[in-house]
Design a binder for these strands. Structure first.
Lengths: 213, 213
DNA sequence: AAATACATACATACTAGTTGGTTTGTCAAG
DNA sequence: CTTGACAAACCAACTAGTATGTATGTATTT
């Protein structure tokens, strides 16, 4: 009787669905055009909603942006990085796998628009402290799980004991974002793959057999 | 008699100075707020010019953006990376030096606003093909000089023969941009330094003595 | 169980401010 | 005296945000 399947049941009221539809659309608009380039009007036409609905659920454009970070981007990072690494019994291998399979998820979007998290960091961190804090919090989540994966590699004897996991984790994050960003200027999936491959090479250089110091 | 010292001589006419003043101011505004966030009005107030002057020298906002890439950002990349690497008789060492001394140039700006080139790549590449092409051209310049430095390292016997200089150069660029971008979310110069240090570590892993394959 | 009261979830219409861009005029230089 | 290099005033489009109205759901009272 009730159509919870359809995205936006016009006749019925479903605040949860409505809010989620706004968030999803806002995310894609921000992903494509940046936060400053996002137009509320586009969200309304794409969702079929009106200003009243939007401003009922969100105080203003800024807080809508905050909500996109917390409710869309953070869960995204958690599902791609945090959860797989936590669930794995060989986090180092999982880390390699995640990096390697990254371009397979949504190749077109990844090449064209890059990383939603990094995009917002680069655009909004210097402009809005509220953005910066929330984005930094997500980065910290990612950093912690990556660091833990490396520490597991050290404990399992896969990685050299003298590895600074804190710094190495940061470098891996930087490298991943750098690779994705680099592919954007050339719009080349091939370039992204080869660039990510270098990260694997770097990780390999941290293994015991690769060192003879 | 003529005051070429002052930025903008009001009474006299100096189209070259005027154009440069617009470009310089536009660059800083783009650097801080992004291209979409840049307001022509701000450029006018900061330069003391009017709409007439701006639209005399530039057709529209878009071509002003293009000119900033070609006349400001490209020379910047050339002076920081290309020229030092070309002039050096030990390009690999010079590469290390450039990376290491990067945070010393304009630390505050670098942490707060990141890399002007990468900022524009991330923001505008997906939105405007004209931007993408021009930005990709600058990236290619940077890539060529970095690749040449690595090849010099191979020829001098500092780097392993089996190194893929093309791919490694791309990875270094990605890593550099990634490190700068990472520092932005935390606004930490310290983090930038340690992150860049990891690039040196990676370069070290390419040297002959570090490999035992 | 029905009526009342109130809150939630939107829709419609409008506004104030912004912003890129244009038109026209003017002054200096070659 | 013609062209280049600006200045001043203006315009049309856009855009976030608001004011107001309305339909629907829900709790309370009787």
């Amino acid at each position: 009787m009730n159509n919870t399947q359809s995205k936006l049941p016009r006749t019925e009221r479903n605040p949860e669905l409505t809010r989620q539809a706004i968030l999803d659309t806002a995310f894609m608009e921000i992903f494509r055009n940046g936060f400053q380039g996002m137009r509320l009007e586009n969200i309304l036409t794409e969702t079929g909603l009106t200003k009243g609905a939007l401003y009922h659920h969100f105080k203003n454009k800024q807080t809508l942006g905050y909500a996109v970070i917390e409710d869309i981007i953070q869960p995204m990072i958690e599902s791609i990085w945090v959860k797989p690494l936590e669930a794995s019994n060989n986090p180092l291998d999982t880390l390699q796998t995640v990096i390697k399979t990254l371009p397979d998820m949504k190749p077109d979007e990844l090449i064209q628009f890059g990383c939603p998290l990094n995009n917002l960091v680069q655009e909004m961190s210097p402009l809005d402290e509220g953005f910066r804090k929330r984005l930094d919090a997500v980065m910290s989540l990612w950093h912690e799980s990556t660091k833990a994966a490396l520490q597991a590699g050290v404990q399992s004897g896969q990685i050299r004991q003298d590895t600074n996991c804190e710094e190495t984790a940061m470098f891996i994050m930087a490298a991943v974002e750098g690779c994705i960003g680099l592919a954007k200027s050339s719009q080349s999936l091939e370039r992204l793959r080869t660039c990510l491959k270098s990260i694997s090479g770097y990780l390999a250089s941290l293994t015991i057999d690769a060192s003879n110091r």
